[in-house]
């Protein structure tokens, strides 16, 4: 099985490079999703409850970022942040781009979810004497989060897909690792198929976890 020249042999030989690549992909995706969601919640809240001026600024931010392809965000972030002023690493610059991208999606989803709640919910909560912070925490947020869950899962898979773009700025995630391995052993098809399988499995797992989560938090009817 492990004869030189077979795929399995090469796989064994490159195992560390591959694992590091997968690890980097997972790390990038997780960080992007986590930080992007935190920022995104803030964005969403400002879009719904902010004062006119803050809403305007955040709206411009969201529209600008969402109208720009992720690839452009990654490249711009890389060239801007590694060469001028701040001097981040490629990894950090790429991550910044992904976090910004993620925050706009999460923010928009949250805004949509909150604004889709019927006004009667706020009124009924007010009618029993709840203050705004109380009614947001107990009545609005639980419903909005349930609403926004499917879209958030979609955003999460988009972040995994966007992590592939960091290979272009030389971040050693799975795409770049595959490219380097293949440059050595020329087993292009096999290793790229493997990479594809790995990406598919990661996203598919996220999708399944999401469906399970959706079922668990669903309201009985």
């Amino acid at each position: 099985m492990f004869e030189q020249g077979t795929f399995l042999y090469e796989l064994w030989v490159s195992r560390w490079a591959l694992l590091q690549g997968v690890g980097a992909t997972v790390l990038i995706s997780l960080l992007a999703i986590l930080l992007g969601t935190i920022l995104g919640v803030f964005v969403g809240l400002v879009l719904v409850y902010g004062r006119w001026a803050s809403r305007f600024v955040v709206r411009m931010y969201v529209d600008f970022v969402r109208g720009t392809p992720v690839f452009v965000l990654v490249l711009a972030s890389y060239y801007l942040l590694t060469q001028i002023g701040i001097q981040l690493t490629a990894f950090q610059a790429g991550l910044v781009a992904l976090v910004v991208f993620c925050s706009t999606h999460v923010g928009e989803n949250l805004r949509g979810a909150l604004q889709s709640l019927p006004r009667g919910q706020t009124e009924a909560a007010k009618a029993i004497g709840l203050t705004f912070p109380q009614l947001f925490v107990y009545v609005l947020a639980p419903q909005a989060l349930r609403q926004a869950l499917p879209a958030w899962i979609n955003t999460a898979t988009e972040m995994v897909k966007a992590s592939t773009l960091l290979s272009v700025i030389s971040v050693a995630e799975l795409m770049l690792a595959t490219k380097q391995i293949v440059a050595r052993n020329f087993m292009t098809l096999e290793f790229y198929l493997l990479a594809g399988l790995i990406y598919f499995l990661i996203n598919y797992a996220i999708e399944r976890a999401a469906k399970a989560a959706e079922r668990r938090v669903a309201l009985p009817s």
Binding site: G120, E123, A127, I128, G129, L130, P142, Q143, R146, L219
Partner: peptide
């Protein structure tokens, strides 16, 4: 105002129960 609202009780046409 929130405190004062608790002095009255309101029932709405669309019920407005908290679905969750």
């Amino acid at each position: 105002i929130a405190r004062q609202r608790a002095m009255t009780g309101m029932v709405f046409q669309q019920f407005n129960l908290f679905p969750h």
